[in-house]
Design a protein around this nucleic acid. Sequence first.
DNA 1: GGGCGGTGGTTGCGATCGCAACTATCATGC
DNA 2: GCATGATAGTTGCGATCGCAACCACCGCCC
Lengths: 165, 165
Amino acid sequence: MAKSETLPPRRAETPLTAERLLAWRRFIEVHAAVFGALERELNERCSLSVTWYYILVQLAQAPGRSLRMSDIASVLLHSRSAVTRLVDRLSAAGLVARNACEDDRRGIAVTITPLGLESMRAAAPIHLRGIAAHWANHLSDSELEILDAAFVRILAAERPPRDSL
Amino acid sequence: MAKSETLPPRRAETPLTAERLLAWRRFIEVHAAVFGALERELNERCSLSVTWYYILVQLAQAPGRSLRMSDIASVLLHSRSAVTRLVDRLSAAGLVARNACEDDRRGIAVTITPLGLESMRAAAPIHLRGIAAHWANHLSDSELEILDAAFVRILAAERPPRDSL
DNA sequence: GGGCGGTGGTTGCGATCGCAACTATCATGC
DNA sequence: GCATGATAGTTGCGATCGCAACCACCGCCC
């Protein structure tokens, strides 16, 4: 931070070059563009947001087709309060149901309903195709490998504990 | 673009493998983790959101330190209504000011104030260092080159017209 | 030179988020 | 058993977004 007074500012621990900054900027733009496109597709064709879809997928894959609120929060990378409202809306739409937790009376077991399963299955091909069309199809196998390896490294540095799925 | 009508949809252009899907998932996670970290840093140390900071940067670089509302919207990748509220809050905080546009009475020229400039300058090193620490420093030059090239390609496909900065 | 489609900005509305405070329950230790 | 600290969820609050409807103004055309 405070540069030692005699040394030229040349080599601060941050040699963030213009190219590197620009690459970050582009990363943001790609995220916005691709995620936005996926969101719009799913909205228009399935009346589902990506977040809703993703919760449904997680529930469908979970043992007993059911997860605790906190589990959802950690998988979704959202706060617990966000999950509370999200599940409020999802259950109002009939896609999930809240059930008491047998072994922990504090807990809520969120279960996907048949309607939820149906919606998820209808949305899946659209969403997967969207990911391919807007993203994966633009990347070669080797690019994807490099990219994914880099992402794993960044995630490991950023989030020491978590690494699931 | 319009597919020739006689071809069967049989082998939709999408062999989205599990690895590719996982890479997309990781892309999302990296974005959330890194962007979240940058957001928290800037919030805590400068009382500025990344969006606010980014608007200030754009204004400071603009000729006359001023931009039209729509210009901000297109640079920010946000809707016009979002920009309206954003500028409401920014000007309530004294960081920008709305001025009439000389040559177009519909327009609003948003100008950065001295306080805005000061805030931006205080935030810049923190934000840039954050980008380096949480992101760029994890990537080698060659990785960044590959990654950026791929991003450019995706953006070009996704947004035919826009490509500035 | 008046009409008309297009652009610039705002506003109402509903969806979404995180933080902090709160309630209920669990788990542990004495 | 009961106090005490941790954990699970919810709720109040303020910030944020996009869409659609709206108003004002511009540019153009006849």
